[in-house]
Simulated scan of single mutants.
Amino acid sequence: MQKIMIVEDDPKIAEHLQDYIDNYGFDVTRVTDFEHVMDAFHTVKPDLVLLDINLPRYDGYYWCRQIRKQSICPVIFISARIGEMDQVMALENGADDYITKPFHAEVVMAKIRSQLRRAYGEYAAKAEERVLEKFGLELFPERLELSYHKQTVSLSKKEADIIESLMERYPRVAGREDLLEKLWDDIAYVDENTLNVNITRVRKKFQELGITDAVETVRGAGYRLHVSWSKEAEG
């Protein structure tokens, strides 16, 4: 039975979520001690976390960063904050998705199922080790690592998926719709800006490896891996 951990300080909302998700056969735990969220995380070992932003003492961004230091389990923010920058910050701090309040429980359930499929189910990465190589780049999808000239950076699952698509399709364009379908099973519920944020995060990972302009935006189509820098490096 898969485990869902709810970190929400409004008891009515938390109880509503717990009751609804429990009806679908999940093992649901509500956190009530908001100063020791990571203690609960280590005890429960959840397969997915539902996380509010406005929490006592430390906010949800903080707790998401703590989770990301130790786990790549899916994290979905549920918040009354509807601003675009709030969603950007959530993704930048390691979230996999964002739901605004008030919400429909059916949408929450659809997003939970989608993230669980991506992380553990039919769409999850295979257990065997794979390596994708292109012009000095080495992507290890199962390790969530990208290497270039003996330097390595860690990736989130979505960052690895985007880079994998770019490498597999090169020199063709990876279309926006194709990327959305690869990253999110239920694209009807995905904000267009969410992909933009994840592309920005991918570009930052390349920059950490000393690679600039690695992801080319093809207007009206999508994105393409730009490898002129690697050809010069090899020469």
Results as ranks from 00 to 15, higher is better:
150 K>D: 10
116 L>D: 07
94 G>P: 13
92 E>C: 04
191 D>K: 05
213 D>T: 04
190 V>Q: 08
68 R>H: 13
59 D>Q: 10
108 V>K: 13
30 R>S: 11
143 R>D: 15
127 A>D: 05
136 G>E: 06
123 Y>E: 13
232 E>H: 03
166 L>M: 09
29 T>E: 13
198 N>R: 15
158 K>P: 12
137 L>C: 05
227 V>G: 02
19 D>C: 06
188 A>H: 03
234 E>I: 08
10 D>N: 09
123 Y>F: 05
71 S>M: 10
85 M>A: 03
101 K>E: 11
149 H>Y: 05
32 T>L: 06
226 H>D: 05
49 V>N: 01
176 R>S: 14
3 K>E: 12
60 G>W: 00
177 E>G: 09
217 T>G: 08
39 D>H: 00
119 A>M: 10
170 Y>A: 06
203 R>E: 14
196 N>D: 10
115 Q>H: 12
7 V>M: 00
199 I>N: 09
180 L>K: 12
204 K>L: 03
62 Y>Q: 13
218 V>Q: 06
131 V>W: 00
104 H>N: 08
189 Y>K: 07
66 Q>I: 09
6 I>K: 14
82 I>E: 15
30 R>N: 15
156 S>K: 08
121 G>M: 06
226 H>F: 11
95 A>P: 13
91 L>Y: 13
195 L>N: 04
12 K>D: 15
156 S>R: 07
55 L>E: 12
18 Q>N: 15
15 E>N: 05
188 A>S: 04
176 R>M: 10
201 R>S: 03
139 L>W: 02
98 Y>A: 05
178 D>R: 00
42 H>D: 10
65 R>F: 04
109 M>T: 02
228 S>L: 07
162 I>Y: 03
216 E>T: 01
168 E>T: 14
221 A>Q: 12
191 D>E: 09
